[in-house]
Design a protein around this nucleic acid. Structure first.
Lengths: 332, 332
DNA sequence: TTGAAAGCGCTAACAT
DNA sequence: ATGTTAGCGCTTTCAA
């Protein structure tokens, strides 16, 4: 089989040296066209395929990027991954994607595996960035970019939207629609994206609208449809007439739970979701949502990584992409 | 940095040879415990991390699996990927995931890249298996397993459910519920999974129920919510009172379109979807659906691949996993 | 139980 | 424009 065809065979068969064949394979210009032609012919005849591993060892470049992802089956992250992949492909990189389940120990683990595999760069996605991870980051010279992931200390390069501002805008919108009691239905507050960024956006909005912050309107839950359903009764019972929800599945569950209680949406209760994922457009009523450019978040992260890998000094460490609020049926 | 710590440094620092250090790293038993201990200490002290690339070159194993996926942001495939990843991790393999967009040319392309990277095995997911791909498959000795992907000729190892039987069951169920006109709303018929497997299941059901097959009840569309919405009017206009839909997004769109037309679900129209993805449980009414064990499909594929990589001769080439029909609100 | 040495397949100076 | 050669960091006989 072609399993064993190496550059040596091609060299021998074509009558040229290893170096020349290597040049042809790598598109080096210092090769006479006639030579190139002959070599290419032999390559095709022998069905030679360069061994990327050997190449990687010799050149210290693997054209492979490591991607740490908390859950590949989660639309939010897989959408980012799609953007990452497209740009990576554009730059001839492949992706080693490693699931971390969002568990710190696994994150450290896969990070080390990826570094062992000599990836040229790493894109990290996670819910929060703890010290262990940060320690690993600082132990390597491999360029790293975080996508859709908050670094409270802004040490590592990252690409995000301004979650604080987005949440603030959403909250204000709901207040302006006439709701004096706006609930904040959030994923785990230990994740900085919720506990820091979004919560402070929510508070800022209340302040600017001259409303009191009230802990009773903050509902913490997991990112899931079921949790949304479960929390619906309490949210409704609190007297709130609107909610900013930090996750789409959670928002979908809340919607479902409220409808189950006979609450009219948006007449009696308004909802704004956070990721503008496909389900927001499939539910009835459609969910209004903060629209994050997920694909772009991934794409820009990867683009940034290529720059860092090329050794370009990047001035802007924390890139913020623009967001919108997509008005649909769940708000007035 | 630890970037340059190699096995040589460890050997020198510990006073042992390369071979011994290598043995320690690889858990070889022929090492005196005392020696092992010393070497391990040096490894930790120096923060040595074996270079997987060099190892791959020397050992001809990369502990990396190539995964070809048509769309990583599609729940169906990303759920499979999750199963693949879990089992891969269990066996200490990493995944290079390459998006093919379901385009033949790219599939061939990424396949070659993966082989060039000396992956130890390949999991292929696609909509259909054309001759080009099959040709590539037969040119390599790298083990390959197809996940959730039909090979009409059953040449390549694959893991699926019995789509024909599942579609037949669904159709019969609808007929038994009293529907004499059951529509078949399908993704592209050029995909064997639709054009061969599912369509023939649909036909078989009609035959067994002594109903005529009528092309007018077959609606071809793309796998998307929008296409479902668009086709709703035609489906309803055809006089059909139920539909088997080969994709969940498509089914969701059909549901939405029908509701828009004022059709009562399930009283006036019943729907059975095909993938039991999360959205089937989020819509109102909930979509009844064929339930494929997506995660398992991936997990079993990967498990099968490990066997093939270990050189075990696998008797069963086409593994069929069990399916169920999940009854929910969209059927009576 | 340990070590020496020959590669794995390729790239990248350095020569010519 | 082409060739020679010394590695890249590791595994793996083969000896000792």
């Amino acid at each position: 089989m072609d399993k064993s065809v190496t550059i040596k065979h091609v060299a021998k068969e074509s009558g040229y040296s290893l170096a020349t064949v290597s040049r042809v394979v790598n598109g080096n210009q210092n090769v006479k066209p006639a030579t190139r032609k002959k070599v290419v012919e032999v390559i095709e005849k022998l069905n030679y395929r360069p061994n990327a591993i050997a190449r990687g060892l010799a050149s210290k470049k693997t054209t492979t990027i490591g991607v740490v992802i908390p859950d590949i089956a989660n639309v939010f992250f897989s959408s980012l991954a799609l953007g990452i992949d497209d740009v990576a492909t554009m730059y001839k990189y492949n992706l080693i994607i490693a699931n971390s389940d969002g568990i710190e120990e696994k994150e450290v683990n896969v990070l080390n595996t990826l570094l062992g595999k000599q990836v040229d760069g790493i894109i990290f996605m996670g819910h929060n960035l703890n010290d262990n991870i940060r320690a690993e980051f600082s132990r390597t010279r491999t360029p790293i970019v975080m996508a859709g992931t908050i670094d409270p200390d802004a040490q590592v390069a990252s690409v995000n939207i301004d979650y604080t501002a987005a949440t603030k805008d959403s909250t204000k919108k709901l207040v302006e629609n006439g709701n004096e009691k706006v609930a904040f239905v959030t994923g785990p507050l230990i994740y900085p994206i919720n506990g820091k960024e979004r919560l402070s956006g929510y508070k800022q909005a209340l302040k600017e609208e001259e409303l009191e912050f009230n802990e009773g309107f903050v509902f913490e839950a997991n990112y899931s449809f079921e949790d949304g359903q479960k929390v619906a009764e309490r949210v409704h019972g609190s007297g709130a007439t609107a909610a900013v929800v930090t996750d789409d599945d959670l928002a979908a569950g809340l919607l479902d739970g409220l409808l189950e209680l006979g609450v009219k949406i948006p007449e009696e209760f308004e909802i704004i979701a956070s990721n503008n994922s496909p389900i927001t457009k499939m539910l009835r009523p459609r969910l209004s949502s903060i629209s994050q450019p997920l694909y772009d978040l991934g794409a820009v992260s990867m683009r940034l990584l290529t720059k860092k890998m090329a050794g370009e000094e990047v001035e802007e460490k924390s890139i913020k992409l623009p967001y919108r609020i997509e008005k649909r049926g769940s708000t007035k």
